[in-house]
Amino acid sequence: MIKAENISYSIKGKNLLHGISLSFNPDEISMIIGPNGAGKSTLIKLLSQQISCTSGNIQYNNRDMKLFAKSELAKVRAVLSQNTHMVFPLSVEEVVMMGRYPHFHDKPTRLDKEICEQTMAFFKVDEMAKRNYLTLSGGEQQRVHFARVTAQIWPDNTKSTKVLLLDEPLTYLDIYYQHEFLTILKQLMQLQSMVIIGVVHDLNLAYKFADKVTLLSKGNLLAHGNTELVCTKENIKKAFLIEPSILKNEKGERFLCF
């Protein structure tokens, strides 16, 4: 589990996050929502230790995150960023194999190769395994990175809790793949205890898939908890300044509509 205590972050005299405290549990999909400039990306970067908090502390499994060696952290924590820009031609399977880099020393083991094949099949990029990554479309490239980060934190039968942090990763994906990806994550969580935290823009995606939602606004924590309790008309209006209607479909699933 991940626990953040009173974390703040400021840069160049500008305060981006004002002392917020919250915790994320394993076996739940947590999503961070909020309007532009709310501090969503800052929070994800702090949680992944791409940046360090100005004050406060973050604990992974009851251990201060700063005590982890980078290489140690990389074995249990994967991050998927918004866009990954590559310059050099590499094949799809080479990119996916990078997810296994923290796990092997010099040459990939058979296990590493098997895991990559499996994740490539998961995200349906196995047929383009030999293709040049740079020739793929934006959505295809993103699926390659999904396969990569999934390979990085692939279940390994240990008791450690793995962490997956997603910084608006669904942006370029078709709806089919957005749903597919989140469904695959749920499958993975059955195999190993995992903390999954993602920033999303599409509030309905949060509504459909999130177990917990974190609502940020202007660097403050507005609400944090079960999806239905956080995504209320009042909270959404407070953060986004527009009041949504909440609709129900024939299956009883709820939707936000603006």
């Binding site: 992944s48 791409q50 060696a69 980078k70 990954t84 880099y101």
Partner: peptide
């Protein structure tokens, strides 16, 4: 070589893969 490969993903992503 392995670390330089990872760097092709960009400095940020390479950092996420545990490279200093």
């Amino acid at each position: 070589a392995k670390q330089l490969n990872a760097l092709m993903l960009g400095e940020l992503e390479a950092g996420n893969l545990g490279i200093s």
